[in-house]
Design a protein around this nucleic acid. Structure first.
Lengths: 341, 341
DNA sequence: TTTTATCTTGAAAGCGCTCACAATATATGA
DNA sequence: TCATATATTGTGAGCGCTTTCAAGATAAAA
């Protein structure tokens, strides 16, 4: 068994509370004894038991982060931002992939009710609205990232999905496209909804009627983009541009369009969303989202709530249009970074 | 304050030990009382305090996973495999990015000495050898993933780096390349060393002398590939093929080669390592490593060690060559999936 | 009937820590 | 000198759980 405060105390002739005080940097301990205790700690290589401390302090210095079971995309970068911020306060991240081996419902609740974590951050969660609200009752701070919470009491921190989508749409409109197809994400996904909304808003503002037949639902994966293009073509829907709900689908769409002999971007410009790493290589125009930043902010928010501060409703982080070859109407060679090998 | 065993016991007229037994599914509790207790638990919505349990059981059902501060590449996929396996036993993953905000030395030790986790899995660690050995003394299981431990007592689970590298090299040799340049990873990185070794071995076997001037050190990032090509060209080193230590650097290399007017693959075929997502899009030939599988196996190994089983020295997982456009000597159009947009 | 074995349950100690409070020593003022 | 304030340390209870041990109840055997 490992050493305890008692052991250290015995070593230098003080009680365990004095040792505890030294460890917690309490001011009410004599300078000389402090020295002695520190020496003993070093000699014995004593390290405090964090679990025991957590029990008495009722605080684990751990935050849970839940992710949907999508490994690619923006998540790693968000996580890195989170760990960066958490580390600054000595906190750790308990990362849980939802929907894989774990039962989708129940896992998150357990994390809270078992008092394993001080707060929960859910990224792009598809956890049922009512579940989230219910979870909020266990008064453990919950923060929603990249999806808006159903309840006012749960703060959210979001990308400006609608704004970015509108901008992307306007880019295509500026290229004189008037029959823009939108490959949207799944219905239960917040970002998907918002991006679709931004798309429609931009059309409306431009005085172009939205046509339901040009909106196809995908699954946020490459293959969803492929299927969406097939569906459009097979249904005989005409379109002169594609706005995809994320980059993966955009890449799939480009792949399928080219396979069908359509020229991208000359005939059909394509724009995505997220600016994932592959986007650069494909030359995909897209809407960049501040991933690292959203991670940092989410943890900051978690800390504020842990400290008892009342959270504001939600924050929206700005996005940024990135123009690459896939929307270069003239087919400008300059913008083609990598035209295959 | 949340409910305790005592509260549940009071509700249905039994002691806390009986409730504890029910929760832990002990056989020595009467069927009738068990029912009553379960009902009370449900009524009160009682959930056990995991921290308290961890304290008595001296086991946290949590595994630490450390990652280098590189967000891209193969790590997310490895993590997903790990969480999948951990979840099957109700375990959780404490994910720590080394080298970012956290002090590189000390963080891992703390995780152990503080008894926060039941085992540690280090991925592609650059933690000092001696540190690892020292850590092993705290007898908490340690598993090395994608890097070999210095000590016999720490089991490692590895990709067949040398084998894959040799195969990649042979592919280039088969294309009649005789002056193959190798952009290797950093000196302190295990994979980098192994891949370099595989490269040399393959040359030797083929009876071609290894020339040090054709081996340049990179940093496993895209930019490292760019710089390596510049260095080779500026130093006037001739080469007729490039084997990069990972895909990121290979992509950087291709980018720079094309910028310098060299034709890939006709003039200079390029092959990478890892098969990251971008590789498909670029059309990069590479060596695929079983990421998800290595994650699963690592956790499995951790569990075995937690259960007291003596670990075997190390496991090597096979790799697989993936041929794409970047090594298609004839420039076969069929293999060009995405020749830019 | 008494004895012994079998089931069930509760009391109590302990995991390693923190913290309120009591105790002691020393210093200050009357 | 004694009362009172101040600095420093130790004692003990408690965080919520598990687990050993003993006790009580019941059933089986003698």
């Amino acid at each position: 068994m490992a050493l305890t405060l008692e052991d250290v105390g015995r070593q230098c002739g003080v009680s365990r509370s004095t040792v505890s005080r030294v460890i917690n940097d309490s001011p009410l301990v004599n300078e000389a004894t402090k020295e002695r205790v520190l020496k003993a700690i070093k000699e014995l290589k004593y390290a405090p038991n964090f679990i025991a401390r957590s029990l008495t302090k009722n605080c684990t210095e751990t935050l849970a982060v839940t992710l949907p079971d999508i490994t690619g995309g923006v998540f790693p970068e968000i996580l890195a931002g989170m760990d960066e911020m958490a580390g600054q306060r000595g906190y750790h991240l308990l990362v849980v992939f939802l929907g894989g081996a774990r039962p989708k419902s129940g896992t998150v609740e357990q994390l809270i009710t078992h008092r394993r974590v001080d707060a929960i951050v859910t990224i792009a969660s598809t956890v049922d609205d009512s579940q989230l609200v219910q979870m909020a009752e266990w008064n453990v701070p919950i923060i929603c990232v990249a999806h808006k919470s159903p309840s006012k009491s749960i703060p959210s921190i979001l990308f400006d999905d609608a704004g970015g989508a509108a901008e992307a749409t306007r880019l295509l409109l500026a290229h004189d496209c008037r029959q823009i197809a939108h490959i949207r994400g799944p219905k239960d996904n917040f970002d998907a909804e918002e991006r679709a909304r931004g798309f429609r808003d931009a059309l409306k503002t431009a005085g172009i009627p939205f046509e339901a037949k040009r909106e196809v639902e995908g699954n946020f994966k490459r293959e969803g983009g492929i299927r969406a293009i097939r569906e459009l073509l097979e249904r005989g829907v005409s379109f002169d541009a594609v706005f995809a709900g994320n980059d993966e689908m955009a890449i799939g769409a480009i792949e399928e369009l080219k396979r069908r002999g359509r020229n991208v971007p000359r005939e059909i410009p394509v724009i995505g969303f997220d600016d994932i790493e592959s986007a650069r290589f494909v030359g995909l125009s897209t809407v960049r989202v501040p991933t690292r930043e959203i991670g940092r902010r989410a943890i900051q928010l978690a800390f504020e709530m842990i400290d008892g501060k009342q959270p504001i409703g939600y924050q929206i982080l700005p996005t940024e249009i990135v123009e690459r070859a896939s929307t270069a109407r003239g087919g400008d060679a300059k913008t083609l970074r990598l035209d295959g090998v």
